[in-house]
Each structure stands twice: as C-alpha cells, then as structure tokens.
Write a protein that binds this DNA or RNA. Structure first.
Lengths: 249, 249
DNA sequence: CGACACCTTGAAGAGGTTCAAGAAATGTGG
DNA sequence: CCACATTTCTTGAACCTCTTCAAGGTGTCG
C-alpha cells in the first residue's frame, strides 16, 4: 500500500494516514478502498481567512473535505447581505449544495486559514458505483445534511433567543469534542453578527444573551473565548423549550 | 417491454406510463432503465388522511414517491407537539430523512388520502450502481432537499411574517403549476396551524396575514381556497425583504 | 342537528429589533 | 513598537412585530 501513496501524488499525507480518516470520507472503508479514494483526491487547496472556497453561482465540480480551519456557508443576496446557513469544521464536507443544479447554491468562506482536500464529484460518483460502502457513505453525508437542516429549521421555527444560543453552543462543543477538543472550552471562529445570522437573531441579541448567560454563571465569556460552566443548564434550556411548547399546545 | 410490466407485478400502472414520470424518479431515464426502476417498486401503499406513512424513530427501509395526495413532514417532540418541516405533493419523494442513521428523523402524515410507490432503498442503491443516470438523479434528489432546506432557513432566519407567507404561497403555486394546475388558484391542504408551524409563526398570525393580503387585494381568501389576484405584489414582498436587509447592513 | 375542529378578530403583553453611543480588541503602517 | 484606524462587541432606551389570551364565528361530519 505504502508505495502507492508515494508514487501517486505529491501530497504527503494520504487518506489512510490522515488523522481525520474516522470522521471524514474514508470512514468505514478498508485499507484498499481508502487508497482508491485517496487517488480521487487530486489536489489540496489552501484558503486564507476571509477568502471564498466557492461562491454562489459557481460551476459545481468538486466536493471538499476540510483538513484544517473553519468555514461558514452563506446565501448572499445581490446586495452583499448574507444569511449564514452553517459553520463547518475539520473532517466535514463542503460543496454538496451544488449537486442539485450543477452550480453552487451558497458561498463558502474561510473563517480562518484553512486547507481542504478537493474531490471531483464525478470521480466520487464513479468510485461509489464500484465500492458499495463508499456509496452508502456518500448517501449518509447527503442525508446527514438533511437531518441537520431539519434541526436548524426546528431551532429557527420554535425556539427563543436563549434556547437558540444554548443549542448552538452545545452543538459546537459536541462537534469539537468529537475532534479531541475540550467539552467545556471553545473559541468562536465567527463574529456575533455571523452567529446572529445563523440563528435568525441580531448581533445585539447574541451579545445580550451571552451577557445573560454569564450573569447566571452558565458560561464565562471573554470575547470569543467561551468557557461552559454549567452544560446542564444549557441542556435544560434546549429541552425545556420542547416542554413549554407542548404545554402551550 | 410491455410483457414485463404485466408479468412482474399486479400493479397496473408502471413507471413508464405513469403521468408523473417526468417529475418523479424515472426523470431522465430511457425506457429500458425506467423499466428496471419499475421492478424496484415492489408495492404501492394507500394512506388515509391523518394517518402516517412512517414515524420518527421507525426503521428506515424504503423511500417513497407520492402518486396522489399531500403530506406534511414534522419533527414531533415526546409530548405530541410538532414542528412542520415540509409539505410534499405528487411526484415528490419522502423518506430520505432516514438515510443518515437508518431510522427516520421525522414523521410523514397524509393531509389527504394518498398513494405512494414504495422503493426499497437498498434496491435503489443497487440499481444506481448500475445506471449512472439514476445515480445522478438520486444524488440530485438528495442535494435538492439540501437546497430547499437552505431556502427555508433563509426564510425563517430573515423574513417577516408577510414575506414568509408570500414566499410560501408562491412556492406552492409554482409546484402546483409544474403539475398542470392553475398558477393563480389553489386549495390549501393544511390548517393555519400547520402553515404557521412550518413558517415559524402562530396560527393567528397566519390568519391575520391572510386577512391583510385580502384587504390589500393581493389574494382572495375563502377558507382554504386561495385565489392569487396580484402575484407581482407577492413577488415584490419577497424580493423587497432582501433589499431592505441590504440597506440595513 | 349538534359536536367538533378550524378560522377570525381584538386587546394586552413580551421578546427581539432598531438606533445610538461608547468601549475593547485587532490590524496596519510608520 | 507604538499610534491610529477599523472592526467587533457591549449596553441602554424606545419601538415594533408577533404572541398570548380570549371570545365568537364558520364550516364539516357523523
């Protein structure tokens, strides 16, 4: 296997020895299939903070696996104003929004210097016809996006500001934890305005809600450094929102 | 080809002569491939109004193409209260929410007596490994769901009540028009409460907004019978929402 | 015809927004 | 390395949209 990795491409770290292989595309593949997948990764791409990986309207060619860095995806209106539709971190996929119409339906912006693996979608399709477990995984990635979006709809449709921010923080630390980071401390890569856009709130509301959480001793907030002191309280906020609506119904 | 249809199943109407074939799963397939797809449709299922096709937590086995009738999908909390995540009509697919975790992440309820074609997902996967254009179509269906959900997030995250209802009505008539119905008249299959849940508003707000539209001569509202008198005005409401935000930024 | 679900409308109230000003952090160029 | 410009964040006060609560009306189905 090893000689393959060396001869195939100038990329030093292949899928097989990437530390994200259990979260990313090779998830569940055996060594042989992982190597075949690795051959699809034709390039790596570095994106500076603030730059875009692709823009709304761009031709869709490839999907991207994030190796390092953070992204936001947003739907930009003609005038430059945008609605954030998601935040993505290492091991997550970008670009699937383009599958439907062969052009991207949103813009992906790096929130910090980032590196992605470029996977031409036609090659992924080809390979997934040959490797059922890869096909399954592609379907799961696409389907997972649907489930995530449903949850955001529930959040936007039925939660109040505090509940939304609590759910947001819990979701972030959970994903960070899966990547080996702390369950209680995190650094936000996005501005209050971007969080607000994602949660359907104004930046002032985000700021105020953070202050409220801090007053109540639920979190410690220092700019973008967040220390979760009482995760239980956050969970109760989110869960309680369901109960409350149930009683109201 | 014809003898296949007759011998294979007791189903009288196959995909090849279904009047939804250009909107539904066989879209873009040639006759031979359409017939192979038809063999995957092992059953039809009738669902009475108010009954569920599947429930949150059910094992995921199949996806469903709607032949007749309307559905809503909703995320039900333990207490029976639910957030509507979408409305589906003839030619659209249901069940994709289960692809990710092998169990359904929402509940599909018939809003009127309905009939669906049952397609075991493993068979669809098998066939799409053999027919690239079917594979592409499965990807497009999954990807299309993502794009649609993004739009709903934009709607919930940044539009006001009037804008949301305008967008909702326009989306409905557009889909109905694609199915040969009027561009100006429609009958709502769902209650004000269900519309409200979908749009992140209360049923009273929906009712009031309908009344406001009626006062302004934009639509004619008679219970669930809606006559759109000024589609232009509705479009302006939706488009204007973007402009306004752009100016505010 | 009566029971039930659904819809409409009003009035009061709450949650979030808007506008505004100032403070803190970050980045830039000399 | 510091001063200045810029971006980001915080907080207050007034306002507005949507919600909540309540009552009555309309339609539908057994």
């Amino acid at each position: 296997m090893d000689h393959h990795i060396k001869t195939l491409s100038p990329i030093k770290v292949g899928c097989a020895n990437c530390n994200l292989k259990d979260l990313c595309m090779p998830m569940g593949l055996n060594l042989t299939d992982t190597e075949r997948l690795n051959q699809v990764v034709t390039a790596r791409k570095r994106i500076k903070r603030g730059k875009t990986l692709y823009r709304l309207g761009d031709k869709f060619n490839s999907i991207y696996a994030i190796r390092t860095g953070y992204f936001k995806t947003c739907v930009t209106t003609e005038d430059g104003r945008d609605q954030v539709t998601g935040f993505q971190m290492a091991g997550e996929m970008l670009g699937l929004d383009g599958v439907m119409s062969d052009e991207h339906s949103c813009t992906a912006v790096a929130l910090e210097d980032a590196e992605v693996c470029v996977m031409p979608f036609e090659d992924i399709e080809q390979l997934s016809r040959e490797i059922p477990s890869l096909q399954r995984h592609v379907h799961k990635i696409l389907g997972g996006e649907i489930v995530r979006d449903q949850y955001v709809m529930l959040l936007l449709g039925s939660m109040r500001a505090e509940e939304r921010l609590a759910a947001f923080l819990l979701n972030l630390v959970e994903r960070l934890h899966a990547r080996g980071f702390s369950q209680t401390e995190l650094i936000l890569r996005m501005t209050r305005e971007e969080i607000g856009s994602y949660l359907g709130l104004k930046l002032e509301t985000i700021s105020r809600t953070f202050s409220k959480f801090a007053e109540e001793g639920i979190v410690d907030v220092n700019q973008r450094h967040i220390h979760i002191l009482d995760a239980q309280a956050l969970h109760q906020l989110v869960d309680h929102s369901n109960c409350k609506h149930a009683l109201a119904a």
